[in-house]
Lab assay of single mutants.
Amino acid sequence: MQRVNMIMAESPGLITICLLGYLLSAECTVFLDHENANKILNRPKRYNSGKLEEFVQGNLERECMEEKCSFEEAREVFENTERTTEFWKQYVDGDQCESNPCLNGGSCKDDINSYECWCPFGFEGKNCELDVTCNIKNGRCEQFCKNSADNKVVCSCTEGYRLAENQKSCEPAVPFPCGRVSVSQTSKLTRAETVFPDVDYVNSTEAETILDNITQSTQSFNDFTRVVGGEDAKPGQFPWQVVLNGKVDAFCGGSIVNEKWIVTAAHCVETGVKITVVAGEHNIEETEHTEQKRNVIRIIPHHNYNAAINKYNHDIALLELDEPLVLNSYVTPICIADKEYTNIFLKFGSGYVSGWGRVFHKGRSALVLQYLRVPLVDRATCLRSTKFTIYNNMFCAGFHEGGRDSCQGDSGGPHVTEVEGTSFLTGIISWGEECAMKGKYGIYTKVSRYVNWIKEKTKLT
């Protein structure tokens, strides 16, 4: 034993070699072989497995989906700052455009905790909710729209109204504003409101030439003092309507412009014939205590009207009353817009006519005020429907199939267009061939041609 100890002390290297040989010859039971080890760690190889990531292109799944990435790591994937920024906006807080917040056709661009709407022409605001041009839906104005110097929408209202708090709607500024039905039992019968379409306001006024200088022999019209197929109006439903009495009662109609003036057809009036105007009328054979009678003290036909040349060209006249009318729910003026808007309103496509005229061709006159909704007829169809001249200051309205029309005794009465609950004068009943005849239409004086003249002559002093 002493000898062994001496050998170990003198030859430590020998001992180490012996131990190493023993270990190498022993069977290893701690580690699995290569094949079995792979069965336990069965993990798919990654895209760049075996390579240094710093030297390969980034992978979106590896960089940002398996674990949260930084902007720089995302930049490695896209290799483009702009594309990385677009991805980053949604990656950080989701897609803010998912709810489609942009209105009126706006395009949404996502941002971090926010979004941006790219608005089409005519709109602005956070969600493109603000109209900035009158060309689109009248700028959301209830009545009139004008573009300011910086191309912003400025709404306005006709006389007797003021802008509401929203700067879009119009509200009454006087007790009985024009064009409004205020009798409670008839307010439910107000005709369907007309909503502004998209309009090209630059070209809204037709490029028409008034044929002022045409000389033409007097034409022989049949029954051209021209509501057939209409309905009984309720008291106060058309408070701007008046009836004219002269040699015979209810020979023509008219509309209240203001307390002192009536507008009617020029062919209705004769110099030297006494005319009485009755406002607030409903049943011409009954006294309903809503009527107001006034005498006409002055007749002003349009300066281009000449019955000797043509009885229905420039067929418009103004009547001055001896005493002002007292405005109330049964006696209310009709609204008159400017030339541009009167023309736009007419193009809405349908209007209402009213009167006490004959209820059928050569038949009896109506006792109760009649009204009828009539569609506008395109000019080409209008011209083809008659052998008589249709001037540019006239328009056609009615039904091709016949059966409904204005008729004798309705002449001078109103053709009105309702705009968001307020009625505007767009025409004056003038003439036609018979009444409600198939293929024939009622012919009306186009008020847009005469609004400046009306307003100039009827100013209240």
Rank of each mutant, 00 (worst) to 15 (best):
V4H: 12
V4C: 13
G13S: 13
L20P: 02
G21N: 12
E27D: 12
T29V: 14
F31T: 15
A37Q: 03
R46D: 01
Y47A: 14
S49K: 06
E53V: 00
E54F: 01
N59K: 03
L60C: 00
M65E: 06
E66L: 04
K68D: 06
K68H: 09
E76Y: 00
E76K: 02
F78N: 03
N80K: 05
T81I: 11
W88S: 03
Q90N: 14
D93F: 08
D93E: 09
C97A: 03
S99G: 12
N100G: 06
N100L: 10
G105T: 04
E116Y: 10
G122C: 02
E124V: 10
E129Y: 03
D150E: 11
N151W: 09
V153W: 06
C157L: 01
T158C: 07
E165H: 09
E165M: 12
N166H: 03
Q167I: 05
V181K: 07
V181P: 14
V183E: 11
S184P: 10
V199A: 05
I210G: 14
L211V: 13
S217R: 07
T218M: 06
T218Y: 09
F221Y: 10
D232E: 15
A233P: 08
A233G: 08
G236W: 05
K247L: 07
K260V: 04
T264S: 06
T264A: 06
A265Q: 04
A266V: 02
V269R: 02
E270S: 06
T271N: 15
G272S: 10
G272D: 10
V273F: 09
V278E: 03
E281P: 09
N283R: 11
I284S: 08
T287L: 14
E288C: 05
R294D: 01
I300S: 03
I300C: 04
H303C: 04
H303W: 07
Y305T: 02
I309P: 04
K311P: 14
K311I: 07
Y312M: 09
H314K: 02
L325S: 01
V326A: 09
V331T: 06
I334L: 06
I334P: 01
C335N: 00
C335I: 00
I336Y: 02
K347F: 05
S350A: 13
G351E: 01
R364E: 15
L367M: 05
Q370R: 13
Y371W: 15
R373S: 10
V374Y: 02
L376P: 04
R379N: 05
L383T: 15
T389S: 07
Y391K: 10
M394H: 10
A397E: 01
G403T: 15
R404Y: 15
D410G: 07
G412M: 15
V416N: 04
T417I: 05
V419P: 00
E420A: 13
S423W: 15
Y444Q: 01
V447T: 06
L460H: 09
T461A: 15
